[in-house]
């Protein structure tokens, strides 16, 4: 049983004459512990695929199994629950809540999991130390650099120990030094046993992954193992 299995997934905007087929029949299997890069140019449909895989959006048609469970027919609250327990998100724009401190941001998914305060505090502290921000836990996002903010976002993604990390252009907004740091952390996470799905337009970054899936016009055009 694959960790993720999608069959013939379509996402069609404006059905009818001016329809846009963002995803046009994508089928894909991802196994536990894989490091997969999904690569494509802007407009290729890779972000739509990422939103679909991350259960942030609903597909027009097709099937989606996670751990063998059909998640394509779940309601809003059930999807929230799955996202909370199984997926850690790393976004290009960090998506931190500006009014919360680094620690407050990292604790968010733990709060929604219903975790007690002491446990939350312990896990978030550990996660922030892991990304090298043990000294900046009480800083607001506005008081940190882009690289630091992205590391907070990574800490948030991993704090609840979800099996899947979904990273959407994680280095897109960062300078090369910070980008390298972030990539190193992601690779470490993979080495720690996590399944990583990395979405990027950058071939060089994609080369860090074990498996590279190329997407073009809403279809998978290449799926190869990185030698």
């Amino acid at each position: 049983m694959s960790l993720i299995e999608i069959n013939n997934v379509k996402k069609i905007y404006n059905p009818g004459e001016n329809e846009v087929r963002a995803l046009d029949g994508v089928s894909l299997k991802i196994e536990n512990g894989e490091f997969v890069a999904i690569i494509g140019q802007s407009g290729s449909g890779k972000s739509t695929l990422m939103n679909m895989l991350g259960l942030l959006d609903k597909c027009t048609s097709g099937e989606y199994y996670m751990d063998g469970v059909d998640v394509s027919k779940m309601d809003d609250d059930e999807l929230s629950d799955i996202r909370n327990k199984k997926i850690g998100f790393i976004f290009q724009g960090f998506n931190l809540i500006p009014s919360l401190t680094a620690k407050g941001n990292v604790e968010l998914p733990l709060i929604y999991r219903g975790m007690k305060k002491a446990e939350r505090s312990e896990l978030s502290t550990k996660a922030l130390e892991m990304v090298g921000l043990g000294q900046r836990m009480d800083h607001l996002p506005s008081e940190m650099s882009g690289g630091q903010q992205q590391r907070v976002a990574i800490a948030r993604a991993v704090a609840a120990k979800p099996p899947i990390i979904l990273a959407d252009e994680p280095t897109g907004n960062l300078d090369s030094k910070s980008g390298a740091e972030v990539m190193k952390i992601i690779k470490d996470l993979h080495n720690g046993g996590r399944t990583i799905i990395l979405i990027t337009h950058d071939n060089e970054i994609a080369l860090e992954a074990q498996r590279i899936i190329r997407i073009h016009d809403g279809r998978i055009v290449e799926d190869k193992t990185n030698p």
Partner: peptide, 16 residues
């Protein structure tokens, strides 16, 4: 709105 999106992505239910 963005904050709501982030919270929902991280697992906030409608009721929360």
């Amino acid at each position: 709105t963005r904050e709501i999106g982030i919270r929902k992505a991280l697992g906030a239910k409608t009721s929360a």
